[in-house]
Computed example of a mutant assay.
Amino acid sequence: MTERPDPAPLCEYDPDPETPVSVAVLEAVAAARGLDSTELLPTYGYTLFDRVDPGALDSLVADRDAVDFAVEFELYGSRVRIEGANRILVYEAD
């Protein structure tokens, strides 16, 4: 079985190192959807906290240069992929 390649992301986001990743994820998804991050709740009817623990997400990437890793989850009709500490990719959800 071969894996299919990822389609082009809707958004590639390089967060400011001072911005918590939970906030950067909201900014990246909002940008991909053509929204302001404050419009996500009224548009989709739930918050990041309803799907992912923001504190755990922030802790995962707290030491942004320490580890090479990737984590993926679905949020607001998007598949979010955090690669290391300095890259967030947003794709259309499968």
Rank of each mutant, 00 (worst) to 15 (best):
Y44Q: 06
A31M: 11
E74M: 10
G77A: 06
T47A: 10
S78F: 03
A62E: 13
L40N: 10
A66C: 08
F49T: 14
V29W: 01
A70I: 11
D94V: 11
E74D: 15
P7V: 15
A62T: 08
P42V: 13
L26G: 00
V25F: 06
P15G: 01
S78G: 07
L89W: 07
E3C: 07
L41Y: 14
E27F: 12
V21D: 05
G84I: 04
E83V: 15
E83T: 15
L48F: 04
R87I: 09
S59F: 09
F49Q: 14
D53A: 13
V80P: 02
Y91N: 07
R33D: 03
S37Y: 07
D63W: 02
T38A: 11
R51S: 07
E72S: 15
E27L: 15
G45A: 06
R64D: 01
F69V: 06
Y44R: 05
T47D: 11
E3D: 10
P15W: 00
A62F: 06
Y44G: 05
E39A: 15
A28F: 06
P54E: 04
A66N: 06
E18G: 05
A66R: 14
A70P: 01
A85H: 03
V61I: 12
V80S: 02
L10G: 07
L10H: 10
P15A: 00
V80I: 08
